[in-house]
């Protein structure tokens, strides 16, 4: 049973791969219009959490509800309302960018007469115009990322799940996506956003959850995290390093530079 008013609610979520506990009994919740940043080093469980939210992975225990729909019971229903950008988009490289977006439009049952007007602004804004009829196999990493972002936004999702979505984007496109996220959030779309780049999280997110070894170590606004870490006035990087216990790198730097 999900809590009314919450766009996303995950309770006691756990997932193991063999002996490795990828996600360990975490709770997450988001309200409409909120941007929640999921921070953590590589292997901390961010991607696994996002995949469980989307219904791609089955949790070993716990429940997830997206807009009141239980993921385990109706994964297709959840996918219908979520826009997801994976960490490394695996696209159909034998299709052109436009064909891929047309394919995605079919899958989300976007009416034929609306497609062109939905796709065009993305092609223009993300500077894909002129490349839309080329095979994706010839695209750069950044162009593939732009196509994946467009594909996630085309059906006007009610919730966005972006896993390192700014990877490989040029500064202009990254700024555009960040501004777009803010705009969508201001219109009520909740966004779950994972990143390694703490400056992005600081600039974009209303709340931040710090994951480490599959657990959430801290969750709240950046001001609340500073309080938790006992570092008022410090940067998010300092807070992150303090909370994850990976703060003192001077010894490693000395060793590497010697």
């Amino acid at each position: 049973m999900s809590t009314p008013g919450l766009a996303l609610e995950a309770k006691s979520l756990s997932k193991s791969f063999g002996q490795i506990k990828a996600v360990n009994n975490i709770d997450l919740s988001m309200s409409g219009g909120e941007i929640l940043g999921l921070l953590g080093p590589n292997g901390s469980g961010k991607t696994t959490t996002m995949k469980m939210i989307l219904g791609i992975l089955k949790p070993d225990s716990g429940t997830i509800a997206v807009e009141g729909i239980e993921v385990q019971k109706d994964p297709v229903g959840v996918k219908r309302i979520v826009g997801y950008v994976p960490e490394t988009p695996q696209l159909y490289e034998f299709l052109t960018g436009l064909e891929y977006l047309d394919f995605i439009s079919d899958m989300y049952e976007i009416p034929v007469e609306e497609r062109k007007e939905r796709i065009s602004p993305f092609l223009d804004g993300l500077e894909l115009k002129g490349h839309e009829n080329e095979l994706i196999s010839g695209y750069s990493q950044g162009m593939k990322q732009k196509i994946a972002l467009t594909a996630a936004l085309l059906h006007r999702p009610r919730i966005l799940v972006l896993d390192e979505a700014l990877n490989g984007l040029d500064p202009r496109s990254a700024k555009l996506v960040k501004d777009l996220c803010k705009r969508l959030a201001s219109e009520g779309t909740p966004i779950l956003f994972s990143t390694h780049v703490l400056e992005i999280a600081e600039a974009l997110c209303d709340k931040v959850a710090i994951m480490y070894h599959g657990s959430i170590l801290a969750n709240g606004t950046i001001a609340e995290l500073r309080q938790t870490a006992g570092l008022p006035g410090s940067t998010l990087e300092e807070v992150f390093l303090k909370i994850t216990g990976t703060g003192d790198l001077s010894e490693i730097v000395r060793e590497l530079s010697s």
């Binding site: 052109t96 436009l98 064909e99 047309d102 394919f103 439009s105 079919d106 899958m107 049952e109 034929v112 497609r115 062109k116 796709i119 490349h131 839309e132 009829n133 080329e134 095979l135 196999s137 010839g138």
Partner: peptide, 29 residues
Amino acid sequence: PTAVTVTSSEYAPRVSFLARLGLTQAETA
């Protein structure tokens, strides 16, 4: 990898003839 342009024609989305065989939009895609 080389940039291969498949078509230069204007994008004109349309319902596939496969849909007339009773396939859903997703199946057709």
